[in-house]
Design a protein around this nucleic acid. Structure first.
Length: 260
DNA sequence: ATGTCGTAACGTTTACGA
């Protein structure tokens, strides 16, 4: 089973690029971030025509996550627990039942946090605390699960072409990296880093300044696998060439293959 | 002349978020 994550930066603007990629990559499940749409505005037909069930958790203009799945999903829940005041649509969960096991899947769009310091950075760190609490609940259940999406964290210097340019940025500040490590150390496998140890692999290139042409990217889209899920991973990759196409997102898809 | 893109609105231009 192939599970992919893709920050599409707006469903209205990305529909052709997204459907082209789906037709080629053929993921069984696609986790989407930054749909930038309310639920009613998200098109279902292009995906249902391709055999996907569609579940969205959207809001007007900003943020928004979705799950496309070829198998039906169960127990879908929307929103990250832990703050009833939080109205930003950044988290969705669902369970896919397979032959060998049921896999819980969390799709996430972690707050950017810039400018830092400031209220947006405080929100990012608080959100990561809440994510850790949810992760602990799921770990305690000892069922296989994964958390994938746009983490807006550059884990280490080798995950950026120009690490010095990001030193003061919310994506790379020591507190952001520490919070990400705190998650990892709960027992997760970061799928890409566990598979490919070399640096220089990125999932995001800014639209500005010819970043793509200079391969001036950062790696901020990640898959974290629970111990039981990591046992089933057979591969992981980044669909880099998507970034060079017509009207691309500034992110590219990352995926894992699982024998489950 | 910020640089680039997507979205929305008191819209043919500006503001915000990334």
């Amino acid at each position: 089973m192939k599970i992919a994550s893709f920050n599409i930066n707006g469903i209205k603007a990305r529909l052709p690029a997204l459907t082209d990629w789906l037709d080629e990559a053929q993921p069984d499940i696609a986790l989407l971030q930054e749909i930038k749409s309310v639920d009613d505005g998200f098109p279902h037909e292009p995906f249902e025509d391709r055999g996907y069930h569609v579940h969205t958790h959207g809001q007007k203009s900003f943020n928004g996550v979705a799950i496309l799945s070829k198998s039906p999903l169960e127990d879908i829940s929307r929103g990250l627990p832990g703050d009833d005041e939080d109205e930003q649509a950044r988290w969705i969960e669902a369970t896919v039942v397979r032959d060998k096991a049921a896999l819980r899947i969390c799709g996430l769009y972690l707050p950017n946090g810039n400018p830092a310091p400031g209220p947006k950075y405080d929100y990012k760190l608080a959100w990561m605390d809440r994510m850790r609490a949810r992760a602990q609940q799921l770990l305690d259940a000892e069922e296989p699960f994964l958390m994938a999406g746009d983490y807006n964290v550059i884990p280490q210097d080798e995950d950026a072409k120009r690490p010095e340019a990001w030193k003061e940025d919310a994506l790379a500040l020591p507190q952001s990296r520490a919070a990400f490590r705190r998650l990892l150390h709960m027992g997760f496998t970061e799928a890409f880093r566990a598979t490919i140890t070399a640096g220089g692999h990125y999932t995001f290139w800014d639209y500005q300044g010819g970043a793509w042409n200079r391969d001036d990217g950062i790696r901020i889209d990640h898959f974290l696998l629970s111990p039981q899920a990591a046992d089933h991973m057979t591969g992981c990759g980044i669909d880099k060439e998507i970034r060079g196409r017509e009207k691309p997102s500034d992110h590219v898809p990352i995926w894992v293959e699982m024998d489950i």
